[in-house]
């Protein structure tokens, strides 16, 4: 493999560039995927049948905690990529580790939130509104879960193999994925939670 040293490691080979471009395009498809889930949610959000409505079940505190956890994790993974570019493997690994822990925290709060809903009698089967809500949140949560596994695998590879064009490329692509999940969350935060509590 030809390595071009004038570029950051993650872009340094032809294959790496292809992978980064391919992943960006995949994120384009993900935008449409989440848009469709939003479309379904918006269409059904008023149809709560005999179940609770949005304003009856949403609570600000857990949502704010989730938002802050995810925004911070997005910040730390950004720092991780910055550390990677200045060649500091140790700092990079630390930041990635913090990111994954924050992601885990987010997931914990989200699961608690789901359990609370179910205890309040708001299940996925109760009404079309709740089906839409759980599916939208669940898809995002499933992405975060997958991200934790994936990020963990990459962290392990960086530890074992150091910062090579290959591991740097994987780390960078993972950071794109993570930032993207943060963007999706911002829209969930604004147009699901805040709009629902308006």
């Amino acid at each position: 493999m030809k390595i071009d040293h004038s570029l950051p490691l993650e872009y340094s080979t032809e294959e790496n560039k292809l992978k980064i471009l391919g992943f960006w395009i995949f994120l384009g498809a993900e935008i449409v995927l989440f848009s469709t889930l939003f479309a379904v949610y918006f269409t059904l959000q008023g149809n709560f049948a005999d179940g609770p409505s949005a304003s009856q079940i949403f609570e600000l505190t857990p949502v704010m905690i989730e938002t802050i956890l995810l925004l911070t994790s997005s910040f730390t993974i950004g720092l991780g990529i910055h550390a990677m570019r200045i060649g500091s493997k140790k700092a990079m690994m630390t930041f990635f580790g913090i990111t994954l822990l924050l992601g885990l925290g987010f997931l914990g709060v989200e699961i608690t939130e789901f359990v609370t809903y179910v205890h309040e009698g708001a299940t996925m089967q109760t009404s079309a509104f709740l089906s839409g809500l759980f599916t939208l949140l669940g898809t995002h949560g499933a992405h975060v879960t997958f991200g934790l596994l994936w990020g963990g695998a990459i962290l392990y590879q960086v530890k074992k193999r150091g910062l090579t064009p290959e591991t740097a490329n994987k780390s960078f692509i993972f950071s794109l994925y993570w930032h993207f999940l943060d963007v999706v969350w911002i829209f969930i935060f604004s147009f699901v939670y805040l709009k629902g509590m308006m």
Binding site: Y11, K17, I20, L21, W24, I25, L27, G28, A29, I31, V32, F34, S35, T36, F38, A39, F42
Partner: peptide, 22 residues
Amino acid sequence: NEDKKTLFTNIGYALFVGLVTI
């Protein structure tokens, strides 16, 4: 990114389809 035009087109297209769908 050296392909930033492609990236912006990609995001633009995705937003077009996403917003049309919504």
